[in-house]
């Protein structure tokens, strides 16, 4: 968000001003709820993580053929996820991230 973007060139002054006003409005709109919305999104993602890794924890998942493909992509977030879920160590036998 470029709310301190200086105007470049005289002709573009009003455009820069408009961009700056937009930036301020955006910051005013999103700033206050950034945390709440990020948390809500994280909750949704946590559920998704559970679906993707459910087979490994013994929960049958009819879509596992497809979710298996996602596992490497989500591996980066795996450590944060299991810690958030209250498990200090990786709950899976097959791979340990910590």
């Amino acid at each position: 968000m470029n709310d301190d973007d200086p105007g470049s060139g005289k002709g573009n002054d009003w455009r820069a001003w408009l961009r700056q006003a937009s930036g301020i409005a955006e910051e005013l709109y999103f700033g206050r709820y950034r945390a709440t919305i990020a948390r809500a999104r994280r909750d949704e993602e946590d559920l998704f993580m559970l679906l993707v890794f459910s087979e490994m924890m013994g929960v049958p998942n009819p879509a596992s053929y497809y979710t298996l493909e996602l596992q490497p992509l989500l591996l980066e977030r795996f450590h944060d996820w299991h810690r958030r879920m209250g498990m200090e160590r990786s709950p899976l036998d097959h791979f340990r991230c910590c």
């Binding site: 709310d3 301190d4 005013l28 700033g31």
Partner: peptide, 20 residues
């Protein structure tokens, strides 16, 4: 962290604080 802890311009922060 870009979520809870975000250094914010003081005028914008005042706007949030005042309207809250």
């Amino acid at each position: 962290d870009g979520v809870d802890y975000v250094p914010t311009n003081k005028f914008i922060l005042w706007g949030h604080h005042f309207t809250s």
